[in-house]
Write a protein that binds this DNA or RNA. Structure first.
Lengths: 209, 209
DNA sequence: TAGATTGTTAATCGATTAACAATC
DNA sequence: TAGATTGTTAATCGATTAACAATC
């Protein structure tokens, strides 16, 4: 029975299921039971079945789950076959690293362009993706209609850049600045990658007390 | 009354408190109540007081909290004044970006060196930090005794690199490879930064259904 | 003193685990 | 058919919120 609103706790586990299932698939494993998967992942079989039940019925009694099928279903739930379009704002070290290394395709995203204000970067390409002048954003967005903006600008301009992009219609932000963004506009989603927060929790855990 | 084992949910909120308090401190704000802070952060005053009570009593009835004092206390709990030492494994785009941009100092870490196998990188420096030959790891670690290794190597060698480092005594890993690491050695902590998982949750949230 | 706000206990809510009938 | 394993309901556990006496 499908749920209306699935809790954030469940959503945050989906990519992990997706990764494990993809791995099993690559290894040529065809079927898996919730208990075997649970063992591998270090969680209970109950949790897996409970999580999946939010979205439908994907298994078969006495058999378990077809790995490829379940992987595809979870991918679908996550929206990886939606071909979301995305742009990068700020081609510093981190923006550049993402352009060069991150498999946007695997997450179902198409990287259309990157933007910067540095004249030495504008007009060049990284991994086949053009770096355009930030000033040309306003003409670019209505034409290409990207869904998501990756924010790899400096902290100082993070909020103002976001505001500008929201005004132009962007509704999803993958935020790498160590700033929490906010807006009064409806349906804008921020996904923060807080490096510092992550390292600090590690610091806590290795601190003797 | 201090708790023995503080739950992970609480720990993961501490860096956020730390950030907000630091911000208030920089803005020159001296005191704050749990309700005002809660409003700013979008959480309840109850939660703040409950969270803090795991570690001690930091406020004063009728007054609230001294911003600078509470910030310092939370920093202490997180271990930022421990001067943890850290090394980077793999100076690709991402390793390089972290060396150049990330404020390790602010998180209480001292970046001692980076390691790579590329002869074009070995012997050079980034932001004043030397890049050394991976082959020299075994002589380096016993001398400098780093606490944490940042893993920015390729997926393919992630687990084997971790195994090697664990053998040499490293007990904390800040893991940027999209692989989940494991070990049978006690007291080893992994903190994963899963870019793909993060982007996939954003994908879910912007997908119409 | 009166008002404000803490730390903590109790109540509520949500998430995880266990149990089991249904069924492949 | 018998064994295995699902999806779901019920029980448990943990986390969040509310309430309030203590007190600055």
């Amino acid at each position: 029975m499908k749920k209306q609103n699935v809790s954030d706790t469940v959503i945050r586990r989906l990519p992990r299921y997706y990764r494990y299932l993809d791995d099993l698939h690559v290894k040529g494993i065809v079927r898996i039971s919730s208990s075997t998967l649970g063992e591998k992942m270090g969680i209970t079989a109950s949790q897996i079945r409970q999580d999946l039940s939010c979205f439908g019925e994907f298994g078969q009694q006495g058999y378990g789950y077809n790995v490829d099928e379940l992987r595809t279903e979870i991918g679908h739930i996550l929206g990886v076959d939606n071909q979301h379009r995305l742009i990068i704002l700020g081609v510093g070290n981190l923006g550049h690293a993402l352009m060069q290394n991150f498999r946007f395709r695997d997450a179902g995203f198409l990287l259309e362009a990157a933007f910067d204000i540095d004249p030495r970067l504008i007009g060049t390409e990284v991994a086949g993706v053009p770096i355009l002048d930030y000033a040309r954003l306003e003409e670019f967005i209505p034409v290409h209609r990207p869904d998501v903006a990756v924010l790899t600008v400096s902290q100082a301009v993070a909020q103002s850049t976001a505001d500008h992009l929201i005004e132009l219609g962007i509704r999803g932000f993958w935020n790498f600045t160590n700033v929490e963004l906010s807006t009064s506009v409806e349906n804008v989603r921020f996904e923060d990658v807080h490096f510092a927060d992550s390292l600090l929790t590690l610091s806590y855990r290795i601190t003797e007390r």
